[in-house]
Design a binder for these strands. Structure first.
Length: 291
DNA sequence: GATTCGTGGAC
DNA sequence: TGTCCAAGAAT
């Protein structure tokens, strides 16, 4: 597939002029802050992350500060960001950084990948955005831009780290500063212009080079990512109700209180057992508490 | 590779 | 109103 050589340059220039001012893009923002922000941004929109991130960094300015409090404090401060296991994992990562890296967030992708809760995206995002190293960083926004502009598809297929990283590496500038700006810029383009629904192609710096647009926006026919199950009435729903109760309580939550949250006993027990297995709830004599 | 895992806003 | 989707990771 033909790829105009100036696509990276145009995205870099567009990003310099149109990128949002976000906390983690401010000069001098600490690597720890970048790591925390990336954990929070895993499946949670930017607007909801910003206030929680500020609180978090004020309370725990370094990994060591977080590592020395109980994990339950992290889960409580996570509030309603969703997927509370991420709070548990971030706390564990802080412990690992304190024990294995002298309290300094590592800059090496492999060292980052070894941290709990850090995967292909987060490891590279921290290495690149916090430390300026040169790696492809591929998130859902980038995957969508590549699918459309390069492959001519309306949607990216199911993610594959190997393929996705190779696809971005093909476009990644050699220069360190340019590579950083391109990684950030293509993500930003996917986030605010090349959006999943109603893309704003009139504002796109590479619209004239976009394979999907050139082909007349054909409907997507490839394999779609698995559809999200309905939340209402699901196990996740019940887990969420229990977690909200645990976060709000400063005394053990009794079985009676948990029973009042959901009528279906089998589903309730399944959810509670799952939370205990995940380490998000701990059973005591009087009831359940955060870890 | 397919599933599971919260929460809330946008359309 | 219900569906879609959001800077993913672990299993």
């Amino acid at each position: 597939m033909r790829t105009p050589p100036d696509i990276p340059r145009r995205i870099i220039d567009w990003f310099a002029a149109n990128g949002r001012e976000l906390p983690w893009r401010e000069p001098g923002f600490p690597a720890w802050g970048t790591l925390v922000s990336e954990f929070m941004l895993q499946q949670t929109p930017v607007a909801r992350v910003i206030p929680r991130l500020a609180e978090w960094l004020e309370r725990w300015p370094t990994p060591e500060d977080l590592a020395k409090v109980p994990a339950g404090e992290a889960v409580r401060a996570w509030a309603n960001l969703g997927y509370p296991r991420r709070a548990l994992w971030l706390h564990q990562a802080a412990v690992e950084i304190t024990e294995r890296h002298g309290g300094i967030v590592p800059d090496d992708v492999d060292a980052l990948l070894a941290l709990t809760g850090v995967g292909d995206y987060t490891a590279r995002a921290v290495s690149v955005f916090a430390y300026g190293s040169r790696h492809p960083v591929v998130d859902t926004n980038t995957r969508r831009v590549l699918a459309r502009a390069i492959d001519g598809d309306g949607e990216p297929g199911p993610p594959s780290a190997r393929r996705d990283l190779a696809a971005l590496e093909n476009l990644l500038p050699d220069d360190l500063v340019d590579a950083h700006a391109f990684n950030a810029g293509i993500m930003e383009l996917g986030a605010i212009v090349c959006t999943a629904r109603n893309p704003r192609c009139d504002d796109c710096p590479i619209a004239d080079a976009c394979a999907w647009r050139r082909a007349g926006y054909p409907p997507f026919e490839g394999k779609r990512k698995t559809v999200q199950k309905k939340y209402e009435g699901s196990d996740r729903h019940v887990r969420g109700l229990i977690m909200a109760e645990l976060r709000a309580a400063h005394l053990p939550v009794t079985v009676r209180e948990i029973n009042s949250l959901w009528a279906d006993a089998a589903q309730r027990d399944r959810a509670l057992a799952g939370l205990v297995a995940d380490g998000l709830a701990v059973q005591q004599e009087q009831g359940y508490v955060l870890p």
